[in-house]
Design a protein around this nucleic acid. Structure first.
Lengths: 127, 127
DNA sequence: CCAGATACTTGGTACGACAAGGTATATGAC
DNA sequence: GTCATATACCTTGTCGTACCAAGTATCTGG
């Protein structure tokens, strides 16, 4: 009872996955560049920001955070707020991370510009 | 003998790879929407267009073309031009492919817009 | 005749995104 | 009292795509 022939909606999901690949790193570093946040907070932020386009799942975020920390781009510290339950792991961007973010942003700009040029040309916008 | 500390250049390559992922499909379909092309031609077009940002390798393009054809988004036909050597396999976009392209372009726009909003906000552009 | 451009193909590997599952604490519903 | 829900973090296995490397085949120029 699987929707093998039935399409349209499920495909869109796959599109987003592949198109948005690598975007998570840029998004997370960007947010952290404005201040420290904990994982769950990032999760919720990305869900609401950008109408869900930038949303990433737990199974994506936590491994990503660990990768970024291992690479020295971000740093973490556990914090147990008195009276609260589960302790939170706060992340903040490092200097190295800021440098990397600049690179990423430049790469992203180039990509967007290249795609824009390609699509516009074919559109006949210059017509 | 690995470049653990030594970095900067090789990383950039990986960055681009991940960021541009899924872009190939959009780029190829876009080009094909303006007329039929053969594989090698697409390869060269993508190398020159967009300052190499959209460049993909043979090992990426040909499997991609096969996937798109299997999905019914494009159609192919071999053509042996008299006097020429190696026959060429020309690809053209199908109606189904045009529909898919519209979806992809919409997805791409949403993603770009969401990232723009995120980056602008954090930039303090809004003061 | 062999190197290099043209032109398409395929097998193996790397890596990120995700689904699914697990741990743990607090709160409000029943 | 316990059950669902929200908060909060983590891990394992699977999948899809990009790439490297190598192979096939034709034509051109040194």
């Amino acid at each position: 009872m699987v929707d093998i022939a039935e399409e349209g909606a499920p495909t869109l999901h796959r599109l987003r996955r592949e198109l948005a690949r690598g975007t998570a790193e840029l998004a997370v570093l960007s947010i952290l560049s404005s201040g420290r946040r904990y994982g769950y907070e990032l999760l919720k932020l990305l869900q609401t920001a950008g109408a869900g386009v930038l949303e990433i799942k737990e199974g994506t975020l936590y491994p990503l955070l660990h990768r970024l920390e291992d690479a020295g781009l971000i740093a973490s510290s556990w914090e147990v707020e008195g009276g609260r339950g589960r302790p939170r792991k706060y992340y903040s961007i490092t200097d190295h991370g800021r440098g990397h973010l600049a690179l990423l942003r430049a790469e992203w700009s180039e990509l967007v510009e290249a795609m824009r040029a390609l699509l516009d040309t074919l559109d006949g916008v210059h017509r």
